[in-house]
Amino acid sequence: MIQAPDLPAWAAFIVAFLIVTGAAITLIGSFGLLRLGSFYERVHSPTLGTTLGTAFIVLGSMTCFSVLQSRPLVHELLILAFVTITTPVTLMLLARAALYRDRTEGREDVPLIDENDEQALAEI
C-alpha cells in the first residue's frame, strides 16, 4: 500500500507538502460538520475542503504528473474550476431549501417571510 512514483527530491517534497496540507484543510472542514451547532453554521465548514483543500490537492497532483511526464499537464485545473463553480450553487440551493423548511415549520430563529418570498421561490 505504501508506494509513490519516483519523483526527483524537490518535486517529491513539494507534492507531499501540497497533498498533506490539502488533506488537513479538508479534514478540518469536515470536522466542522461535527463541531458546529446549527445547520446554518454547519453549511460553512465544508467550503474549506472545496476551496483551499481542493486547490492544494489539485496543485499537488498537477505538479506530480507534470514532472512524471516532463510536460505541463494542466487538465486537473478543470476539477478545480468545476468544484469552485458548482459548490456555491449546491450550497445556496441547500440553504434555501433549509430556510424554506424552517419557515413552513414556523421556527422562530430564522428570518421572517417577506411578501416577495413566495414569488422568489417560484422563480427557481
Partner: peptide
Amino acid sequence: TPTLFLAWSITAAQ
C-alpha cells in the same frame, strides 16, 4: 529517501 517520504505523506493524507 524522498520517494519514501512522499509515499508516507500520501498515506497520511489518505
